[in-house]
């Protein structure tokens, strides 16, 4: 657990440092996630094993399983935003519902169509004039 936290917080710190040094418009933790994913990918390539190291995995999965708890402090800040929500409830409700439905549909339809389209490069006998 301490070494897993060290890896996670270390990647976050490097992410924040890179963000400050290069003025990336990307949040530091996201850069940290990208770094860790690359490191794990390289490691998987070298060892031929996709599983994350047992040093890291239980802590990472424990944090992810309880991710909901971590949103509560920031979410409570919504109490301070009650005025905005009362004033703009219509655009807020319509936009959340509309964009969620559209995005679900578009993602699933594109995925569905592209998975069903046969690979034209594969050596099938479709072109045979028999």
């Amino acid at each position: 657990m301490p070494s897993a936290m060290l890896i996670l917080v270390g990647c976050q710190l490097v992410g924040e440092l890179l963000r400050n040094a290069f003025q990336f418009p990307i949040p530091g933790p996201v850069i940290g996630m990208f770094l860790l994913a690359v490191i794990l990918g390289i490691r998987a390539n070298r060892t031929g094993n996709d599983r994350a190291p047992p040093l890291l995995k239980p802590t990472a999965e424990g944090l992810i399983a309880n991710m909901g708890l971590l949103f509560v402090p920031a979410g409570v800040g919504i109490v301070a935003e009650a005025g905005v929500i009362r004033r703009e409830w219509l655009p807020i409700v319509v936009a959340v519902a509309g964009s969620t439905i559209l995005s679900l549909l578009v993602t699933a339809l594109v995925m569905h169509w592209t998975l069903r389209t046969p690979h034209t490069s594969s050596p099938d006998h479709q072109g045979d004039a028999s």
């Binding site: 996670l8 940290g32 860790l36 994913a37 990918g41 998987a44 944090l63 992810i64 949103f71 402090p73």
Partner: peptide, 20 residues
């Protein structure tokens, strides 16, 4: 509690990498 949002974001790399 709020502080842990950073480490959990980094931790999302684990399921991502396992599905490469």
């Amino acid at each position: 509690i709020h502080f842990l949002l950073g480490p959990v974001t980094v931790a999302l790399a684990v399921p991502l990498a396992e599905n490469f």
